[in-house]
């Protein structure tokens, strides 16, 4: 099944009376999520604010976000997919195996109670974080909670939304989608876009040593990636665009200092609900913006003879 049943944060604020956070800790990672969008605000159809909403936290341990929750469900690490699958079965009234549900660290009664509450909601929303999408099961976990939210629409209005971290990572998804048709991990080396996570995703490419040059902007993989990936970045010519000299800059061939997005560089960024917002920078940087440097590199490449993909002797597409 494809597609995401979702909404904007404005709709959550004005309508949601049942909110689940799964594998995320907004109290520490998105401090204003509760107060600006989801829990405490009074909405058009939730006039009592926090009193009119129920909040459930699902995580492997009780984080500071647990203080804000009405119900905390502790799932055993790595058992999120099993828990979602059991919930999906219960939503459809199908039988579930007690012992296998117990492996998730929760009982059938606890899950049935959650399902009853989800079905009784007027407008439910499931926010899921990296505790779900980046642990065992990975994108299959995300697909499962998106399916759970979609299937609940047979009973009530229910939506799902990923809790996105870094500033404009949502914008990267949106821009790559509307330019290439795919959200991330896109290979253009045949002259047309190909998408295959696991094959064309950065960590896999670098660990295998597939790339022979890299341009890094708005990221510091030298501080976050697995060691073999970092070692490969140090082996090949790496170019870094960043407002600071980063870990990656130190192993790079070329570093270019740029203005800080939103602080001294203007432009557009996407919020996690895919609403684009304009930036209003307060400072004027002595450095050029990422946009300007990328344009200059592109113009410099354009001065060179056109690149044509070698497609087994057939005519190139580029």
């Amino acid at each position: 099944m494809g597609g995401k049943v979702t909404c904007t944060l404005g709709e959550v604020k004005n309508r949601a009376d049942f909110i689940i956070y799964w594998g995320g800790n907004p109290a520490e990672c998105h401090p204003r999520h509760f107060t600006k969008y989801t829990l405490t605000q009074k909405g058009k159809f939730v006039p009592n604010g926090r009193k009119g909403r129920t909040m459930v936290l699902v995580d492997i341990r009780e984080t500071p976000s647990g203080k804000a929750a009405d119900l905390f469900l502790q799932v055993r690490p790595g058992k999120d997919f099993e828990m979602v699958t059991a919930l999906r079965a219960l939503v459809k009234g199908q039988p579930v195996d007690r012992e296998r549900v117990a492996e998730t660290g929760l009982t059938v009664e606890q899950l049935q109670d959650l399902v009853n509450q989800m079905k009784a909601a007027k407008f439910g929303v499931l926010f899921f974080g990296m505790g779900l999408s980046m642990t065992r099961g990975k994108h299959m976990n995300s697909a499962a909670v998106l399916a759970l939210a979609a299937e609940l629409n047979a009973f009530t209005k229910f939506v799902a939304m990923p809790m996105r971290g870094h500033g404009n990572v949502t914008g990267a998804d949106v821009v790559l989608r509307y330019t290439t048709g795919y959200p991330f991990g896109i290979n253009l080396c045949r002259g047309y876009p190909r998408f295959n996570p696991g094959e064309f995703s950065t960590v896999d490419l670098l660990v295998r040593g597939d790339n022979d040059a890299a341009l890094i902007l708005g990221a510091d993989p030298g501080a976050t990636m697995p060691q073999p990936a970092i070692e490969h970045l140090a082996r090949i010519p790496t170019i870094v665009l960043d407002p600071k000299v980063t870990h990656t800059s130190r192993l790079a061939k070329v570093h270019i200092t740029t203005a800080a997005t939103g602080v001294s560089a203007p432009g557009t960024v996407y919020r996690m609900d895919e609403v684009p917002l304009p930036l209003r920078p307060a400072l004027k940087s002595p450095y050029p913006t990422d946009e300007e440097v990328m344009r200059r590199i592109r113009e410099e490449v354009l001065k060179k003879p056109a690149w044509l993909p070698a497609t087994n002797g057939r005519a190139a597409i580029a």
């Binding site: 404009n168 949106v174 990221a219 665009l241 996407y270 990422d290």
Partner: peptide
């Protein structure tokens, strides 16, 4: 070549 990151930059740069 690899172009990677894109998180802390504007849509225009992306």
């Amino acid at each position: 070549p690899l172009v990677y990151g894109l998180s802390n930059v504007t849509c225009e740069a992306q």
